[in-house]
């Protein structure tokens, strides 16, 4: 236990450097996944077509074991940044995709009709009606993806990419269990911290009307259990 606490003090510079590297890699992977997944999911959800395709692509990608992708990547395109980034993007992408798609597709058809009746174009309906209403579910996908990515980014070390907490976590001979646990602790804190920050972003982004509607629904007189916070990955 003493060794564990001492590790933070003795190696603070190293830990700070690796933590920063860990965060940057995770954020980069998550951003790439978001940039790819949200437009695709939103567009297909808007069209109300190809849902079969999105669901199946999401399920297949979600099944891919990260270390297997890294291993195949080493054989095909070598060690380094590309290898680990591809693996982490594949980890984060399906969840953001399916959540965005589900959210946009399940926007109340009456609301969409009303928007169309007001003369909005398809693009306006998507950006001003469907996407704002979808923010809570999209953000919940992003938050869960962040937790996955940050907890998995240490595999970078096996993909030959130095400079993440994986340098310590995978090197128990060099740093002892105390070091491994210290690095793991930071990784856990990063997961919760990022989740909390994204939660704040979610609150800021959610349109006021939607927030009010949610409040009424959850605290209203009908004490029906809140509708399944849809097992995001299911």
């Amino acid at each position: 236990m003493t060794a564990y606490f001492a590790f933070f003090g003795d190696n603070s510079a190293l830990l700070a450097e690796l933590t920063l590297g860990h965060v940057l890699l995770s954020v980069a992977a998550l951003l790439i996944a978001i940039v790819l997944a949200i437009p695709l999911g939103a567009w297909i959800g808007h069209l109300h077509r190809f849902s079969f395709l999105v669901v199946n692509v999401g399920n297949v990608l979600r099944s891919l074991p990260t270390l297997a992708i890294i291993a195949i990547g080493i054989a095909l395109y070598g060690f380094g940044d590309i290898n680990i980034t591809v693996a982490l993007v594949i980890l984060a992408f399906p969840l953001v995709l399916t959540n965005t798609f589900t959210a946009v597709e399940s926007v109340d058809p009456g609301t969409v009709e009303a928007a169309r009746g007001m003369g909005m174009t398809g693009w306006q309906i998507l950006t001003r009606v469907e996407l704002p209403s979808s923010i809570p579910l999209i953000m919940s996908g992003i938050r869960t993806s962040w937790v996955y990515v940050v907890a998995t980014a240490y595999l970078a070390t096996f993909a030959g990419r130095q400079g993440t907490l994986g340098d310590i976590i995978s090197n128990i001979e060099g740093y002892d269990l105390a070091g491994v646990l210290a690095a793991a602790t930071i990784s856990i804190v990063l997961a919760f911290l990022g989740d909390a920050l994204l939660g704040l972003a979610e609150r800021a982004l959610t349109p006021t009307g939607l927030r009010l509607a949610q409040r009424v629904r959850t605290t209203g007189p009908i004490a029906e259990p809140a509708p399944a916070p849809a097992p995001a990955q299911a």
Binding site: V60, P65, A68, A71, I72, I74
Partner: peptide
């Protein structure tokens, strides 16, 4: 076999074990 191959960089083993793991998952 995946970790063995990561150390030896034997690409046949990397691909075999990686693909088999993916197939098991699917």
């Amino acid at each position: 076999p995946i970790f063995d191959a990561i150390h030896t960089l034997f690409s046949t083993e990397l691909i075999s074990a990686g693909v088999l793991t993916i197939l098991v998952a699917l």
